[in-house]
Amino acid sequence: MAAARRHLRKLLLSAERGEELHVLPMPWLSHRKLASFAYVAEQYGYRYDGFAPEYSPSTPTHVFAFRRTADAQQRAASTMEQYPDALRGGPLPGMRPGGSGLRPLPEASREVALLLARIMVDVTGSQYRRKRIRFAVTAAVIGLVVILVRGAFTAASVDGFLTGILPVIGGLSLLFLAAYVLGRRLSRRWAAKYRRMLDEAGVEWPINRLG
């Protein structure tokens, strides 16, 4: 709950300064929590807008943007009136009290689900997926090379290296390959699932701002 309120406080500072975009590095492991926070942010006048302009998919951390709505000032004023204690431990808009503070109430569940669908379509997009996979493969190769070199220097003999280190390298390589294949399949399945959810709800995503 502390994280949710900390990031909400930062968002409200952006609102006070009238900033068009509020940038949020991914603060939770769960995209569902991010979707719940996006719902809360919308009540204060900032709508989920996808990846931040400066976001680089070559890094493992996602950075998201929230765009100020035309009626942001009115939204924020109304929400603050209804939830005066949101920053002081009270319930957040549309969320159940207690716990992490980011568990949606039944009346907010559909909107949170559609926000989650937008987020998942973004994070499973092909251009971002390819670059993240490239990053992961590079990290895995470097890790294997480090193990290989260290094993070569610490092995008592050539036979010890061949029988001790190479099987470990082979096993880790197979493990990385299996994780890679499984990750690609899951990513494509999630992308199709959430794209279908948005299509059925009539939600255009991503928004074409040039059209």
Rank of each mutant, 00 (worst) to 15 (best):
L8T: 01
A192T: 14
I119V: 15
A179E: 14
S173C: 08
G101S: 10
G94D: 00
E42G: 15
T124A: 05
F161K: 04
L144K: 05
L114P: 01
K10F: 11
R132P: 02
I142A: 11
A156N: 10
R110H: 12
R103M: 11
S126D: 13
P60F: 06
Y44S: 00
P60V: 07
G171Q: 06
P25H: 10
P167E: 01
S14Q: 02
L198G: 04
T163H: 10
V123A: 04
L186E: 13
R47T: 05
V158E: 13
S56F: 03
D122K: 04
G202R: 11
K193W: 10
R130T: 14
K33S: 05
F64D: 01
G164V: 03
Q73I: 11
M197V: 09
T154A: 11
F64E: 01
Q82G: 04
M1S: 12
E19Y: 15
R184D: 09
R209V: 11
V146N: 02
R132M: 12
E107K: 12
T154M: 12
R9W: 12
E20L: 10
V158K: 09
Q127I: 13
L114S: 00
R68I: 04
L105C: 07
Q74I: 13
G90P: 08
L148I: 05
R75P: 00
A76Y: 05
G143K: 10
S78C: 09
R118W: 04
A108T: 06
K193Q: 13
S100C: 03
A179F: 10
G170C: 06
R32T: 15
R96N: 06
P97A: 15
G160N: 10
R96C: 12
K10H: 13
I169K: 00
G50N: 01
P53H: 06
S187L: 11
V137I: 10
R110E: 15
I169S: 00
S78Q: 15
E200G: 09
E16D: 13
D85K: 10
E204V: 15
I147E: 15
A152I: 01
I119S: 04
L175D: 01
G89D: 07
R47A: 09
A108N: 00
P93A: 03
L29K: 13
F176A: 04
A86G: 04
F161T: 03
V168F: 04
G171I: 07
P53R: 02
G94S: 02
P27G: 00
R129K: 07
A3F: 10
Q43Y: 04
R6E: 11
T79N: 03
L177Y: 12
R185I: 08
G164K: 04
P27N: 00
W28Q: 00
W28P: 00
L29W: 07
D199P: 00
E200D: 15
G164Y: 03
T59F: 07
V181S: 06
A70S: 11
V23Y: 06
R188I: 04
P53Q: 06
A152W: 13
Q127F: 04
L12D: 02
G99I: 08
K33I: 02
W190V: 14
